[in-house]
């Protein structure tokens, strides 16, 4: 290892010496002297570079970070609150939409689906058990009343008719029950006077604030039922 190379690497990094260098230094007093000189120089350099650090720097650094993270936290809370609010808002809209929007596009479809759904609860042989008085009691909320009993009324109660409160009447028919719905007028749902599927048929009549829908088997004389209702019902204002 030549002298110049050793001097060069000592000057470049006095602390890093390999075996070969140590060996070379050990055997050469001139090199030893050089190493001492450079070590002394490095000591001086280190001292000179070791400029005093402001006493309060540590505290300042901690303070700034504390303030910064406080700020950050505050804005995070605000963002979270805003997000929670939007989620709640959207949920509200969704629930509203699901609860109160019409699933069916027209009266007929819904009436048929409703009858199909509840068909198993009624049988044509059920006894009449609703009096005219209690029927009219229920009719009162639709601002209507029946003048006299007509047919055999098996069942009368409030029902949800696609989101709106309605009255569901079931009469004994010739071979199967006949259903009558009193439904408040609703702009969202399309009115249709006549409707049918494979087995059921329906008629609707539109009055001032309510629709009266009759649904029954195709064999039932629905026109007659409609007529009877029409003759019997009185609407108040």
């Amino acid at each position: 290892m030549d002298d110049l190379h050793i001097r060069r690497s000592i000057l470049a990094d006095p602390k890093a010496r390999d075996e070969a260098m140590n060996e070379a230094i050990k055997n050469d007093p001139a090199k030893q002297k050089f190493v001492h000189e450079i070590d002394a120089l490095d000591e001086k350099i280190a001292q000179a570079m070791n400029i005093p650090v402001p006493d309060d720097l540590y505290n300042k650094l901690i303070l700034r970070q504390t303030l910064a993270s406080h700020q950050q936290q505050k804005s995070k809370t605000r963002v979270r609150l805003a997000m929670a609010a939007s989620v709640a808002f959207v949920m509200g809209l969704t629930v509203n939409f699901m609860m109160f929007s019409s699933t069916y596009k027209n009266l007929g479809d819904y009436a048929i689906a409703h009858v199909d759904h509840e068909a198993s609860h009624f049988s044509n042989t059920d006894q009449a058990n609703v009096t005219l008085a209690s029927l009219n009691d229920k009719m009162a909320s639709f601002k209507g009343s029946f003048d006299s009993t007509f047919g055999t009324l098996i069942f009368a109660d409030y029902c949800r008719f696609d989101g709106s409160k309605s009255l569901h009447l079931v009469f004994q028919g010739e071979s199967s029950p006949v259903n009558v719905f009193i439904v408040p007028n609703d702009d969202e749902i399309e009115f249709n006077a006549k409707f049918a599927n494979e087995t059921l048929e329906g008629r609707s009549l539109n009055f001032n604030h309510s629709n009266v829908i009759v649904v029954g088997d195709k064999k039932e004389p629905l026109n007659q039922w409609q007529e009877r209702i029409n003759n019997n019902i009185t609407w108040s204002i």
Partner: peptide, 16 residues
């Protein structure tokens, strides 16, 4: 880097 370190120390040594 090693060359620069060498030169840096060498300059300071010469100055001293």
């Amino acid at each position: 880097v090693m060359t620069r370190l060498f030169r840096a120390r060498n300059q300071l040594k010469e100055a001293v």
